[in-house]
Write a protein that binds this DNA or RNA. Sequence first.
DNA 1: AAAGCGGCCAACCGCATGGCA
DNA 2: CTGCCATGCGGTTGGCCGCTT
Length: 295
Amino acid sequence: MSTGMDAMWTAAGSEDSAAAELRRGPWTVEEDVLLAGYIKAHGEGRWNELARLAGLRRTGKSCRLRWLNYLRPGVRRGDFSPQEQLLILELHFRWGNRWSRIAQELPGRTDNEVKNYWRTRVQKHAKQLRCDVDSRQFQDVMRHLWMPRLAERIHAAARASATTSSASSTTSSEHAAATLHPMYRPNNSLLGPMSDMPSPDTTTTWSTATARPSSGALFPSNQVSMAAAAPGCSADWSAGSASARSDDMFDGSWSELLARACDDGADSLVFPDFGLGESRDNSWSLDDIWSQHQY
DNA sequence: AAAGCGGCCAACCGCATGGCA
DNA sequence: CTGCCATGCGGTTGGCCGCTT
């Protein structure tokens, strides 16, 4: 592609040849415009050369990072949805700190965002519980409490969405499907066929899910088991999500409660039985979580 | 109102990897 | 085979911003 822009970039590059040392720190709007404009005209790649020709006093690395994490079309920002959070937890169990690999399964999200989410939200909870984020105890907390709760939240949102759209021209199952992340589609490439999962593309299955009664009854065993594990605590599991922000569904009494559970007696902690089997071999998966939410 | 504090996130840094001459 | 270069990845950090005191 050869346009009038070429002269502009050339001129900018020649000006830059005599420029001072490289800039660092936050990017300015002008730099963003230069970078995006150059890439629009010439495409990505050869970042060092790109930085020079675009007239940017930045390293190629810096340009690449700015483009991939911020300027690139399709980059999504803002809070992670429950679907995304659930997927991050699942994939981190599977792949560990392979942020770029995990981010590939979250369209529009960058490895940096996923990494920051893990370090701020997830590790924060581990810290509150005085557990190592890689410890068996914390993994059990995520597996038995956090992930099922996320799954339930997703179902609840889908149900609410289906209810509010019942008068529309589309069917409730179609509407619910539209609200779901692609990972919940039956033929998701990552998770395989997932025939057990609620299938928004299958009216029968999803209609059954939407007909399920209120979510409050989902975790009765939580309350019993955790109260038994930490006598004297008021395990207010149902209230936590009502007022907390979307990604802090367990803030509040749960932290104190689980902190006790994660102390020395953690091995005796009785988690609710979601029928997932033992996690010693780490062989459980999101399928297991979902299969427990079939109604 | 202002200072202190902590959380969050954008950006940087160092290392690993792959392609190519 | 080896060295160089570009790119990718994960860990780390600096600074902004909102909340608390």
